[in-house]
């Protein structure tokens, strides 16, 4: 029961974070819209669940996911481990970190598939497009983009190439794709960049980046540790537009 005081402290601080949202919603509801809230009791219970959920989430995060992610990153980049699986001789080369890239890819796919906000957007997109966009097709396209992005991001931390080269190159690809992709997919594709990196992905991926930057020689955690999340945001835009272009191309070919 040692987590009880920590739970109460987190609950108290989360209460102060949820109060503004409740204030905005009820303030506008009563002062501007001036209509009674339907199912007020149910809404209030729902808000209490949100508060409780955030508290438990933060508690579990600090207890398991953050230390676990950091521990894995440290162990996978530990010189003893790297020397036991290395491919080259002499000083460590970027290829010797291959398990890190594989881990980044696997964690990218599995966390993106677990993101509740991506599931919500995929269901909405399926509904709005009258079934033209499959829930699983979109989720897989986004997860693949996220996985490729995060593994490229770890490669960047290992090699130390400045982050903006990758981001600018990614932006140029997105801009070119925007002109050729089917018009209806463009807003959804831009949105899917943001939804990949949610409650589950951010803590794990941020910990991986910071842990990696701390253990790879000559890297600064402040400069190199951040940036993985932006890779996970950028590449799904490319993969979702690519997915739409591929399906359009297949339809054209079969005609």
């Amino acid at each position: 029961m040692q987590w009880v005081p920590e739970f109460l402290q987190l609950f108290w601080s989360t209460l102060f974070d949820v109060v503004p949202i409740a204030g905005i919603i009820f303030g506008f509801q009563f002062l501007v819209i001036r209509k009674p809230v339907k199912n007020l009791k149910k809404v209030l219970i729902g808000m209490f669940y949100v508060l409780l959920g955030i508290t438990l989430f933060l508690l579990g995060l600090e207890q398991a996911l953050f230390p676990m992610g950091r521990m894995m990153a440290e162990q996978l980049t530990n010189p003893d481990f790297l020397n036991s699986v290395r491919l080259t001789t002499g000083a460590l080369q970027w290829q010797d970190y291959y398990w890190v890239y594989i881990f980044a890819f696997a964690i990218g796919i599995s966390t993106a598939l677990a993101e509740p906000s991506l599931i919500a957007v995929a269901i909405k997109a399926n509904e709005v497009s009258a079934g033209a966009i499959g829930v699983w097709g979109l989720r897989l396209a986004v997860a693949l983009g996220s996985a490729v992005g995060i593994s490229l991001g770890t490669y960047r931390i290992v090699t130390g190439v400045p982050i903006h080269y990758f981001i600018i190159a990614g932006y140029v690809i997105v801009i070119i794709q925007t002109f050729y992709a089917p018009k209806a997919i463009v807003p959804l594709a831009f949105d899917s960049g943001g939804v990949t990196t949610s409650t589950v992905t951010v803590p794990l991926v941020a910990a991986l980046g910071l842990g990696l930057a701390e253990t790879v020689p000559d890297r600064s955690a402040l400069i190199d540790g951040f940036g993985l999340i932006s890779f996970a945001c950028l590449f799904p835009i490319i993969s979702v537009m690519g997915y739409a272009q591929l399906s359009e191309w297949q339809v054209k070919k079969s005609k």
């Binding site: 219970i45 949100v50 959920g53 955030i54 989430f57 508690l59 579990g60 207890q63 996911l65 589950v200």
Partner: peptide
């Protein structure tokens, strides 16, 4: 910790 994260997410989405 994992149990708390699962429980927290469940309550959060439900709410």
């Amino acid at each position: 910790g994992v149990f708390f994260v699962i429980l927290g997410l469940t309550f959060f989405i439900y709410g």
